[in-house]
Design a protein around this nucleic acid. Structure first.
Length: 679
DNA sequence: GGTACACTAAACAGCA
DNA sequence: CTGCTGTTTAGTGTAC
């Protein structure tokens, strides 16, 4: 989950596809409108309603939280590094980095990715520069504040211990506790100030936050702060802490150049046990040696040390124990030009991550707004106020602007970061989910599954335990058609299900029964006695008979459908754009390596042509509210309630998203693993 | 409200 | 007897 989510922004290409598949299926595409649920007959409607809408939102939230965690980790790394640099200049342009970014740890983005990130930013280069500088300065300030806050906590704890053992100094303890409380309150204020700061940035045009959108739920200390406010706060805290302390220069108090860069910092106890030790006018107490602090707190915990390896960017030196690591840190990563440069690089990485986080926050907000609009749209409008007229629909679906969506006037969904293609991608596709999308569309409108459906989301469904939005009949047909001889035994169909869909790796009794039921029920499935037993084939004629009722639409839609671009273009463009935005290899359906995907285009055309034939004969049945994509591919529209287990939140989805194709045999997977490879 | 459809669950039979 | 395969029925939910 973690990597999948976060790398969507910066780091890991492979996971990016994962994320965008998630996005597609929980926010954007018509397919997302269906949330699976295996057993819904015994669930109350209330359960379903509460389960569906928050699903995607929770996932997005989770993704953001994870990204935030990683960002904080990066900040920690930078923090440790930054304290070692006496030359660091907060206002220094971030691009003057002599050290190759490729030296960084595997976690770190490559120069190419960095460039991509830069290119995809919403801001102009000038704006970006300004914003970078501001963020850089603010970030350092808040880091210092964090450190001080931590010290305060430590001090309080130590004094509490002292009090317990010695039973004295109650007054001082109370004083510190009071300061602690006040400090926490001030932190809350700072959070508000952060939002103000963002708003000011927005007013300056440096941030593109949509109007009317609620303030972003900023995390304390996770965003930049107004320097003056922070300094004021700093002054208040420090002055309250030591009354006799001569308030130092605000700039110097925040200037890392005044900090002690020696690794042999004064012991923490000396600073903490005696508050007066920090009354030297220099705020060395506020610039602790993190390694020493964390070392004492957690003997083997260090942001730059983990799994016996030095995590200094580009180092990865093996250190047997923590002591050796400290030696290594002090020797190999001492204060020099190289370390300084690396530190700057790390700073830049953090900045980029922050920017990316801000951007993703924006995206999240837009998505949430979008989903909120959709979910709160009155159900009483089965024919939604589709402002996309038939004239508009006669054009390419991809040309339709998101503004065409029926938005509630109070919560307009402004264009989503129009500079980047990623969000607009989602918008482009999600725009086709207008109307009562949360409602499950009739399966009458389900076009049987096409190769494109599975192809484009194959990896997703293979790994994510999400029920595919396709009917059993469609899946069975797909399985059979994918086989070389266009025929499968029942067991082979089972295997196809379990191989292609993680969802079908559990509750085997249920879905297998359903498969058998469908095989028997539908005339399109023909049982043929074969040499090796009975096999099932698909009677396409019978199968096509089901189609006429599946597509209805007005002539404009039909006309639009005559070009396969109506369906292919937006989706493929969406995928490609999202991939390009995240600088990952194009994940086209044709490059997925599945032999069945080679016929994707023809399959799509086949589906479309087949649909067209029937649709043309049924033009009287118009559905003006249906968008082209829905009309062409209404199978995505079908929405189903969530499985209670899946409804637990995004975690269930996201965690399973990283499952290896190897099945989880320990989870209700009643059958043997796939014991034969049909292909 | 009726109808069609999909899904789930279950019963049942035949067979190896 | 057990398990698999295949058929059928019933109940439920959803969309039209």
């Amino acid at each position: 989950m973690f990597q999948c989510v976060f790398s969507s922004s910066v780091l890991q290409p492979h996971s990016t596809s994962c994320l965008f598949k998630h996005l597609f299926y929980h926010s954007a595409t018509p397919a997302s409108q269906k949330q699976p649920e295996p057993i819904y007959s015994k669930k109350t409607e209330i359960q379903r309603q509460t389960v569906r809408a928050p699903f995607a939102k929770l996932f997005i939230f989770s993704a953001l939280q994870v990204a935030r965690q990683l960002l904080l980790q990066q900040q920690q790394q930078q923090q440790v590094s930054g304290l070692k640099s006496p030359k660091r200049n907060d206002k220094q342009p971030a691009l003057q980095v002599p050290v190759s970014v490729a030296m960084m740890t595997p976690q770190v983005i490559t120069p190419q990715q960095m460039q991509q990130i830069l290119q995809q930013q919403v801001l102009s280069p000038q704006q970006l520069q300004v914003l970078l500088q501001q963020q850089q300065a603010l970030m350092l300030q808040q880091q210092q504040l964090q450190e001080f806050y931590k010290k305060q906590q430590e001090q309080l704890q130590l004094q509490l211990l002292q009090q317990q053992h010695a039973g004295k100094q109650p007054k001082e303890q109370q004083q510190v506790a009071t300061q602690q409380l006040a400090f926490q309150q001030q932190l809350l204020q700072m959070q508000q100030l952060q939002q103000q700061h963002l708003l000011s940035l927005q007013r300056q045009g440096l941030l593109t936050i949509q109007p009317g959108q609620p303030a972003l739920p900023l995390q304390p200390l996770a965003q930049g702060m107004i320097p003056t406010e922070l300094q004021q706060l700093w002054k208040e805290v420090t002055s309250a802490h030591t009354a006799e302390e001569t308030t130092s220069n605000n700039h110097s108090s925040l200037d890392l150049t005044t900090t002690c860069v020696s690794s042999s910092a004064p012991s923490k106890t000396s600073l903490i046990m005696n508050p007066h030790a920090s009354t030297n006018g220099q705020l060395s107490v506020h610039t602790p040696k993190r390694e020493s602090l964390s070392h004492e707190e957690h003997p083997h915990s260090h942001p730059l040390y983990g799994h016996g390896v030095c995590k200094w960017p580009g180092c990865e030196a093996v250190c047997e124990d923590f002591q050796s690591f400290l030696k290594h840190l002090n020797s190999e990563h001492a204060l020099d030009d190289r370390s300084t440069a690396q530190c700057r690089v790390q700073m830049q990485v953090v900045q980029q991550l922050e920017l990316q986080l801000a951007k993703d926050k924006e995206r999240l907000q837009a998505m949430m707004t979008h989903l909120h609009v959709k979910s709160t749209e009155p159900k009483a409008a089965p024919q939604p106020l589709n402002l996309v007229s038939s004239v508009t629909l006669s054009k390419s679906a991809s040309e339709a602007s998101p503004q065409s969506l029926p938005h509630t006037p109070t919560t307009p969904t402004a264009p989503l970061t129009p500079v980047t293609q990623g969000p607009s991608v989602i918008t482009t596709t999600s725009m086709h989910t207008v109307g009562p999308i949360r409602r499950r569309y009739s399966d009458k409108y389900n076009v049987p599954i096409s190769s494109a459906d599975i192809a484009q989301n194959q990896e997703f469904y293979k790994n994510a335990e999400v029920r595919p939005p396709f009917t059993y009949a469609s899946l069975i047909r797909q399985a059979i058609l994918e086989s070389p001889e266009k025929q499968l035994t029942l067991n082979e169909i089972y295997n196809w299900f379990t191989r292609m869909f993680a969802y079908f790796r559990r509750n085997a009794a249920t879905w297998k029964n359903a498969v058998r039921h469908n095989l028997s029920l539908h005339k399109c499935f023909v049982r043929v006695e074969n040499v090796k037993g009975a096999v099932w084939t698909v009677d396409e004629v019978e199968f096509q008979k089901r189609r006429p009722q599946k597509i209805s639409g007005n002539p404009s839609l039909i006309k639009n459908m005559q070009s396969s671009h109506a369906y292919c273009t937006p989706l493929n463009a969406a995928l490609q754009a999202s991939m390009a935005e995240n600088s990952i290899p194009l994940y086209t359906t044709a490059s997925m390596g599945n032999p069945t995907l080679g016929n994707l285009a023809s399959a799509i055309r086949e589906e479309l042509n087949g649909a067209m034939e029937h649709t043309n004969s049924n033009e009287s049945d118009s559905s003006p509210g249906r968008s082209p994509m829905q009309a062409v591919h209404p199978v995505h529209v079908k929405e189903e309630p969530l499985d209670p287990e899946e409804a637990e939140g995004p975690l269930s989805l996201v965690t399973t998203a990283n499952h290896s194709p190897d099945f989880d045999h320990d989870r209700d997977y009643e059958d043997e693993p796939v014991n034969e490879d049909m292909e």
